[in-house]
């Protein structure tokens, strides 16, 4: 099956600093791909390149097998790529429906089509088996951390998206809420979406991922199936870029 998203040989520099070296990444539908790496390994830059925030210097960007050029977040969204950033980018003073449609409101003539938006929001939350939210007209300021994360994720899948990228969705959540968010992440992939999960928590990574892509100093050390590796191997890939046969040899992928 053709991967939904495939990057090959991505280079990215900020002035004299080269942040990404020849990075390859494959993301498949129905799978959770965990993107791991130490602080400064290039995870966020890579994601921002995918999301059209940073232009790539060179390399191939294939979406559903076809080469594309993504120059802005809107173009990424048009392809079906949604990114949920750590800060969630939700507006506290708006309710759940308003947040989910922020900037992309449905209109009927000149006025907003509140009914349709409400129905779509409710249907999306129901399809994700979200039961914790009392009312979809609740202000986001009244939600807990886990509920906010849920709303942000629901916002990302509302648009028939194909790839959802989650940046540390469980950071700063309690155990019960972490469990709910992890189950939601898994459900997204089981429903056929391609999910990229950025996380520092190895238990979260192993709990839900199908593949692990480990970045080391701007290079893709290895992309492996989660069922084939151990915790210590992944930690080695993150901290030294190699583990046994896996990973980089003298700075280049084996």
């Amino acid at each position: 099956m053709t991967p939904v998203l495939e990057l090959r040989g991505i280079d990215k520099s900020f002035g004299p600093v080269q942040v990404l070296h020849d990075v390859a990444l494959t993301v498949r539908a129905g799978e959770v791909t965990a993107l791991v790496g130490d602080n400064g390994a290039g995870k966020s830059t890579l994601v921002k390149c995918v999301g059209g925030i940073h232009p790539i210097d060179s390399g191939e960007y294939l979406f559903e097998g076809k080469p594309v050029h993504v120059h802005s977040p809107r173009e990424a969204a048009a392809l079906g790529i949604e990114i949920v950033y750590q800060d969630l980018a939700l507006c506290d003073n708006l309710d759940i429906v308003q947040n989910m449609f922020l900037g992309r409101e449905n209109k009927r003539g000149l006025v907003l089509d509140e009914d349709t938006m409400e129905e779509m929001a409710a249907r999306t939350l129901a399809s994700l088996s979200v039961k914790t939210v009392k009312s979809i007209r609740q202000h986001v300021s009244s939600l807990s951390g886990g509920q906010r994360q849920t709303v942000a994720i629901a916002k990302a899948v509302l648009w028939n998206s194909k790839v959802v990228i989650l940046d540390e969705p469980t950071a700063a959540l309690g155990v019960a809420q972490t469990a709910q968010v992890l189950e939601l992440v898994r459900r997204l992939a089981d429903q056929g979406l391609a999910v990229v999960l950025i996380s520092h928590n190895m238990n979260d990574v192993f709990a839900v991922s199908d593949r692990i892509a480990a970045l080391y100093l701007g290079r893709m050390a290895a992309q492996v199936k989660t069922s084939d590796v151990t915790h210590s191997q992944v930690v080695e890939l993150i901290t030294s870029g190699r583990s046994g046969d896996l990973g980089l040899t003298n700075g280049v992928p084996a």
């Binding site: 155990v175 972490t178 469990a179 992890l182 190895m202 238990n203 979260d204 990574v205 192993f206 709990a207 839900v208 989660t226 069922s227 084939d228 590796v229 151990t230 915790h231 210590s232």
Partner: peptide
């Protein structure tokens, strides 16, 4: 499982 998935799956992998 959610709290110890790294161990569970490492053991499975081996």
């Amino acid at each position: 499982y959610l709290g110890a998935a790294a161990q569970v799956r490492s053991r499975l992998a081996t």
